[in-house]
Design a binder for these strands. Structure first.
Length: 693
DNA sequence: TTTAGGG
DNA sequence: CCCTAAA
C-alpha cells in the first residue's frame, strides 16, 4: 500500500520540481513586501484589513446612507472588465480602504431636547445592521446581488459581512454614524469545490466582489462581529444559501486570512502593477480580495500544475470517494449550523438595537415607546440621512460626550476544506475574529471632511464644540502605523483579544485632560458582560473539535468581552476625541506571538507540499497560505520541519493539538518522495562529480 | 528575497 | 519562532 501510494504520488500526484531555484526566484518578486514589523501586527493588519479606515463623509456630501456615489457603477464595470484580464492587477486606490463614517445627527445635550436621536440610532441600527438578506431596498442591491452571485458561483460560503456602523452616543450630543465598509475588510469562509477541475473552472470564472464600494457592503453586509456596549456579538448573516456545488475533496485547501497588512504598504501597491496576478486559484482570490493590492507573478507553470493537481486530485478522490460523498451530505448541515447561529445572532441584533435605544435613554430620557415605528415621522430614514437640521445645539454645553456603541467589522473570508471538522471551522473563524479584533487601530478625527491631525487642538478649536460645525464629525479607523502591542494580537490568549482589541478605542481615551470631568466617565469601563452573547452561541457546544486555545477563548470571550464603548466626557478643552497611546506601539522587535497551526492549516500545508515539494516554500505559501499573512514561508518551512519530526516520533511524545495520523502519514510520504527527488536532481546536476566518484 | 538549517 | 548564511 505504501508503495502504491508512493507510486501514485510519484507519477500522478507530484510534480517534479521543474525549475531551478534561480529561475523561480527570477519570476517571483512581487509579493512579500511585508515589513518585518508587520508580521507582528497580526490583528491589526486585519483591521487594516477589517476595519480599514473610517472616514467621515465630506461635508459637501450630506450624510446619506442611501446615497450612492455614481462611481460605484463604474467600479463595478471595471471589476467585470478586469475579470477578463487575469494578468492585470487592480489598482488599489487608497479610497478603497476608507470607510465612511457618517455622523448622522448630533444633538444637543439638553435633556429636554425634542430631538430623538435615539430614534435615529434605532432606525439606523435597524436598517443598517440588518443581515444582508434583509437589506434589499438599497439602490445598490442589484449590484450586490450580482456580486453575491459571483461569489456563490465559486462555491464559496460567505459568512457575514458587516455593515460597519458605529453609533456614537453621548448623554448630551449624540452621533449616529455608519461605517461603510469595504470588501477588504472581510474574510471569507470559502468552501472550494475540492476538485481541481472545479477550481480551475472557478478560476476562470468571474468572481469578484464588486463590493469594493462600501455601499455594497453596507447593504449586503451581514452582521458579523458586533461589539456593543454590553457584549461582543458574532452574528452571522443568514442570507447565504448554500451554493449548489459542494466541496468534493480536500483539495485546494486554502486558508484565506485576509490580513491586509500589505494594503497599507504603498510599495506593495506599486508592485502590483509590475507583476500581474498569478493564474489560477490565486487569481480568484485576488479578485475577491478587496485589496487586490498585491500582485502575483504570472504562474508560468500553471498548466503544469493544473495537470498535476488534477491527477493528484483524482487520486485523492478515488482514495476518499466514500469520505467525500459523506462529506457532501454532511456539508450542508455543517453550514446550516452556522446559519442557525446566524439566526440567533440576528435575533440578538434586535436586542442590540434595543439595548442601544435603552442606552440612549440615559442621555435623552427618551421613552422606549417613542422609538422607532411609534414615531416614524421623526426618525430620519437612515438611508436618507439625517440632516443637520435635526440637531439643535446648545453652545453653552461645554462638554462633548461621545460614545461609540458598536463597531462592525465588515466580513470574514475563510477557506477551509470540507473535510475539516466543525470544530476546526470554528477555530478558523475564531482566529479570523481574533485577528480582526486583536489588531491595533488608530483613530483619526475628521471634521467637516478634513482630517484633524493635530492632537493637541481642542475640540473647541477644532470646531467639534461649535454648533454650526457639528454636522460632520467623523472618525477614521485605520491601521496603526506601528505594530500593535503584542497582547493585542496574541492568539495565545484569545480570550483577551476580543475585549482587548477595542482598547485602543475604548479604554485609553481618558487622557489626563479628559479625566478631569466627571460625567459618564465611569462608563468607559462598564463591562456588562452578556454571557449569552452570540459569541458563545457560535461556539457553544464544540465537543467535536479538538481543544484549542481558540475554542477555550470563546467561552471566555463571551464572558469577558467588553463593550466597545468609550464615553469619555470631554470638555471643549480636551484633546483628541479618542486619544490613543501611540507611544506604546513603537515597541516593536518583539517576538511574534505563537500561533499554533491548526489542523486545517496543517492539511493545507501538507497538500501544498505534496504538490509543490519541499524547498519551494514561497510557492507553498502563495498556494495555500496566501493572504494568511502571519504565516511566512519560513513559518511553513519550519512547520513542515516539525511535522516531519512529529510524524517520526511516537504519538505519545507529541504535544499540542494532535495532528491526524493520516496527515502525518502524508507528511512522511511526501517528505520521502521529495527528498528522493531532491537527491535525484542533485545527482543530475552534478553528473561529473558522480562520475568522478 | 528565498532557501536551508541551526538555535 | 528567530536568526542568518548563502544563493
Amino acid at each position: 500500500m505504501a508503495l502504491q501510494k508512493r507510486l501514485d504520488y510519484g507519477f500522478n500526484g507530484y510534480q517534479v520540481p521543474p525549475t531551478p531555484r534561480a529561475a523561480r526566484s527570477a519570476r517571483r518578486r512581487c509579493l512579500f513586501k511585508r515589513k518585518p514589523d508587520e508580521q507582528q501586527t497580526c490583528a491589526f493588519d486585519l483591521l487594516a484589513t477589517v476595519a480599514g479606515k473610517l472616514l467621515l463623509e465630506d461635508e459637501n456630501s450630506p450624510p446619506s446612507v442611501n446615497k450612492q456615489p455614481p462611481v460605484v457603477e463604474d467600479f463595478l464595470m471595471k471589476d467585470k472588465k478586469e475579470e477578463n484580464k487575469p494578468s492585470e492587477e487592480k489598482s488599489c486606490d487608497r479610497d478603497c480602504y476608507e470607510r465612511n463614517f457618517i455622523v448622522t445627527e448630533l444633538v444637543s445635550e439638553a435633556p429636554n431636547s425634542n430631538i430623538r436621536s435615539n430614534e435615529l440610532l434605532c432606525a439606523q441600527n435597524d436598517v443598517i445592521s440588518r443581515p444582508a438578506s434583509g437589506i434589499t431596498t438599497s439602490d445598490c442591491s442589484e449590484k450586490v446581488g450580482s456580486a453575491e452571485q459571483l461569489v456563490n458561483d465559486d462555491c464559496k460560503l460567505r459568512l457575514g459581512i458587516f455593515s460597519p456602523s458605529v453609533d456614537i452616543e453621548s448623554s448630551g450630543h449624540r452621533l449616529s454614524a455608519n461605517f461603510k465598509s469595504e470588501d477588504e475588510n472581510k474574510k471569507q469562509i470559502k468552501m472550494d469545490s475540492a476538485n481541481i477541475r472545479n477550481l480551475s473552472i472557478n478560476n476562470n470564472k468571474v468572481s469578484t466582489h464588486s463590493s469594493r464600494h462600501f455601499e455594497d457592503w453596507d447593504r449586503k453586509s451581514s452582521p458579523v462581529l458586533v461589539s456593543t456596549v454590553d457584549s461582543v456579538k458574532f452574528p452571522f448573516c443568514g442570507d447565504h444559501t448554500p451554493c449548489g456545488r459542494l466541496p468534493v475533496s480536500r483539495d485546494n485547501v486554502k486558508l484565506v486570512n485576509r490580513d491586509d497588512d500589505e494594503n497599507s504598504s504603498d510599495s506593495t501597491r506599486n508592485k502590483a502593477f509590475k507583476a500581474p496576478p498569478r493564474v489560477g486559484d490565486r487569481r480568484i482570490r485576488k479578485l475577491l480580495e478587496p485589496k487586490n493590492c498585491k500582485s502575483t507573478t504570472p504562474n508560468v507553470k500553471h498548466d503544469e500544475r493544473y495537470n498535476a493537481d488534477t491527477e493528484r486530485s483524482n487520486y485523492i478522490n478515488r482514495k476518499n470517494s466514500l469520505k467525500s460523498q459523506r462529506s457532501l451530505r454532511d456539508f450542508p448541515f455543517k453550514k446550516r449550523r452556522l446559519y442557525d447561529c446566524s439566526s440567533v445572532s440576528n435575533s440578538d441584533e434586535g436586542v442590540r438595537s434595543d439595548r442601544m435605544c435603552n442606552v440612549s435613554e440615559n442621555g435623552t430620557k427618551g421613552g422606549g415607546a417613542e422609538y422607532g415605528p411609534t414615531r416614524p415621522g421623526v426618525i430620519p430614514s437612515p438611508t436618507t440621512g439625517a440632516g443637520g437640521g435635526y440637531a439643535s445645539f446648545h453652545s453653552r454645553n461645554a462638554q462633548v460626550k461621545l460614545k461609540i456603541k458598536s463597531f462592525r467589522v465588515p466580513e470574514l473570508f475563510i477557506e477551509i476544506p470540507e473535510t475539516a471538522t466543525v470544530g476546526s471551522l470554528k477555530r478558523t473563524v475564531m482566529e479570523a475574529v481574533n485577528a480582526v479584533l486583536g489588531g491595533g487601530l488608530r483613530v483619526g478625527v475628521v471634521v467637516q471632511g478634513k482630517k484633524i491631525r493635530d492632537d493637541n487642538r481642542t475640540l473647541l478649536q477644532t470646531g467639534i464644540a461649535h454648533d454650526n460645525k457639528m454636522d460632520t464629525l467623523g472618525f477614521t479607523l485605520e491601521p496603526s502605523p506601528a505594530p500593535a502591542p503584542i497582547r493585542l494580537c496574541s492568539q495565545d490568549r484569545p480570550g483577551q483579544l476580543v475585549h482587548e482589541s477595542p482598547q485602543p478605542l475604548a479604554r485609553y481615551p481618558p487622557t489626563p485632560t479628559i479625566s478631569q470631568n466627571g460625567g459618564r466617565k465611569g462608563n468607559v469601563d462598564t463591562p456588562p458582560d452578556i454571557p449569552g452573547s452570540s459569541f458563545s452561541n457560535f461556539i457553544e457546544s464544540d465537543h467535536d473539535s479538538t481543544p484549542s486555545p481558540s475554542d477555550m477563548s470563546l467561552g471566555k470571550t463571551s464572558t469577558e468581552s467588553r463593550a466597545l464603548v468609550t464615553v469619555p466626557s470631554m470638555k471643549p478643552g480636551a484633546m483628541a476625541v479618542v486619544p490613543l497611546r501611540k507611544s506604546k506601539r513603537s515597541e516593536s522587535a518583539q517576538r511574534r506571538i505563537r500561533r499554533p497551526f491548526t489542523v486545517a492549516e496543517v492539511e493545507a500545508l501538507v497538500q501544498a507540499v505534496e504538490k509543490l515539494g519541499t524547498g519551494r516554500w514561497r510557492d507553498v505559501k502563495l498556494r495555500a497560505f496566501d493572504s494568511a499573512k502571519h504565516r511566512t514561508y519560513v513559518d511553513l518551512k519550519d512547520k513542515w520541519k516539525t511535522l516531519v519530526h512529529t510524524a517520526r516520533i511516537s504519538p505519545q511524545q507529541r504535544r499540542g493539538e494532535p495532528v491526524p495520523q493520516e496527515l502525518l502519514d502524508r507528511v512522511l510520504t511526501a517528505h520521502a518522495y521529495w527528498s528522493q527527488q531532491q537527491a535525484k536532481q542533485h545527482l543530475k546536476s552534478q553528473p561529473d562529480t558522480y562520475i568522478l566518484l
